[in-house]
Write a protein that binds this DNA or RNA. Structure first.
Lengths: 253, 253
DNA sequence: GGCCCGAGTTGATTTCAGTCAATCGGCAGG
DNA sequence: CCTGCCGATTGACTGAAATCAACTCGGGCC
């Protein structure tokens, strides 16, 4: 079913943003027709990435921003001793590569979690068009802002002391994101491994695995390897705020 | 000593970016003289905030970006049940408020950790100048990108499983940031409470307190309430990578 | 100066998640 | 089809950090 959907997406590939299925979920949101044509002149098709394929890596010179068209990516940093921290999972319509704006080279790595197609926005060209189309400038800022807010969500998730809350929040927010994509918000496919989820949340793999089992026992989920069905959305939501408040509720320092 | 420095900073307050002591550490970095004058027309002085004073809160309409001129801020989100997650501590030259670009209202709160002065950049005016000065546009993007990278650092910190590593990284990165400000990178003053530090790192206050004591016993630090002196910078650095690698080293999902 | 309150520290105990280890099971390649 | 390998699960045990509790200290306020 998943791969069928992907093939379908691939068949839908068009050159232009105006005819892209993502439409308002992507950069074009709020841009009118004529400006959209201008935007189209900056978009260049990028090769399709296989599972595990790298879009850019740490140290690469900054050439472009990238939009996930279909499939999904993970971004992560890796320190000198090889330790990885996953920064985010990126679904269709989301833009990656903002980390490179500061120093003109990437300081993180982006890798496909499954076969994915990517639109490339070469930044030189992009900058010019952005300076000519104020609406696009605003939209680009909005998109970066969304990225910042998404990272806030990630921080809130990691800050929880109950691992179960963390996973619940993770699943809830993933469901929400799938729903925005007009996909199902109940039957989720998790393109990332348990290791990825564990790393993303700052937990051990075993803990994640046990939590999936526990949530299944509780009747919240039906877990089948990479596909998860949310049976009790209400319960899941309540698990996002279960723990007792402690160091969290605190006023001015 | 701290308050003396603050009074000194306040005395240095000037209207224009061109004469501001922060100079290249702030938005003007890389902007030439004439463009700087244009930038000056957008900057409006903001009231000085007392310790605990709020710059903006969740839900406030987006009016401006804010630059810390002196002092320091914390930004945080607070969910419906009152749980707080601190997102960042902000030192002079840093810009806050990007979270509001997406939805035209703030989705976090900013509060002064000590008496602080703030420059206000009304966004309407700002946008116009940015569209006329490409260099400023690029610089603004660079600054947001720095914000994104800083959040990556925060995530990496939180992802560590050893609390001691987390605190070591926190202190190290704070020392680095103070050093960029041409202040001392050895004698740190921590304007935030232990509760703030604990929350920022996702730990309990008691753990943070114990870790400070431990680091002092180890001869790494000399701790005196809000002032910390780094005695063994080398040891501190080594503590940032101590733990054994486990779930962290992992390839494609 | 003295009082009061909240931040901070320290100690005792508990608990939850990490670690180590064994096993399962699905997929890929032969 | 069989086999090998890696991701995933499960179990037993351990340990680090959370929790609960007592107490100190320092700063602000009268």
């Amino acid at each position: 079913m998943v791969s069928e959907a992907n093939i379908f997406d691939l068949n839908q590939l068009r050159r232009s943003c105006s005819s892209c299925a993502l439409g308002e979920l992507c950069l074009p949101a709020g841009i009118d027709r004529t400006d959209l044509d201008r935007l189209d002149t900056t978009v260049r098709d990028k090769r399709t990435l296989d599972r595990g394929g790298t879009l850019y890596r740490d140290g690469d010179p900054f050439e472009a921003l990238y939009v996930v068209r279909s499939g999904s990516l993970k971004t992560f940093v890796q320190d000198e001793s090889g330790d990885v921290q996953i920064l985010g999972f990126h679904l269709p319509g989301e833009i990656v590569g903002f980390d490179a704006l500061a120093l003109n080279r990437h300081v993180s790595q982006a890798e496909a979690l499954e076969r994915s197609s990517i639109c490339e926005l070469p930044y030189g060209r992009m900058q010019q068009v952005v300076s000519e189309v104020p609406a696009l400038q605003r939209q680009l800022m909005r998109v970066i802002s969304r990225e910042v807010i998404e990272e806030h969500r990630h921080l809130v998730m990691m800050g929880r002391q109950q691992a179960q809350e963390q996973l619940a929040i993770f699943l809830k927010s993933l469901a929400d994101r799938y729903q925005r994509l007009q996909r199902d918000g109940i039957a989720l496919s998790l393109p990332m491994s348990r290791y990825d989820i564990a790393n993303y949340l700052g937990l051990a793999v075993e803990t994640v695995s046990r939590l999936f089992s526990r949530l299944e026992e509780m009747g919240v989920l039906e877990v089948n390897r990479k596909s998860v069905r949310i049976l009790r959305s209400d319960l899941l939501a309540s698990l996002c705020h279960s723990g007792t408040t402690s160091t969290k509720r605190h006023g001015a320092g």
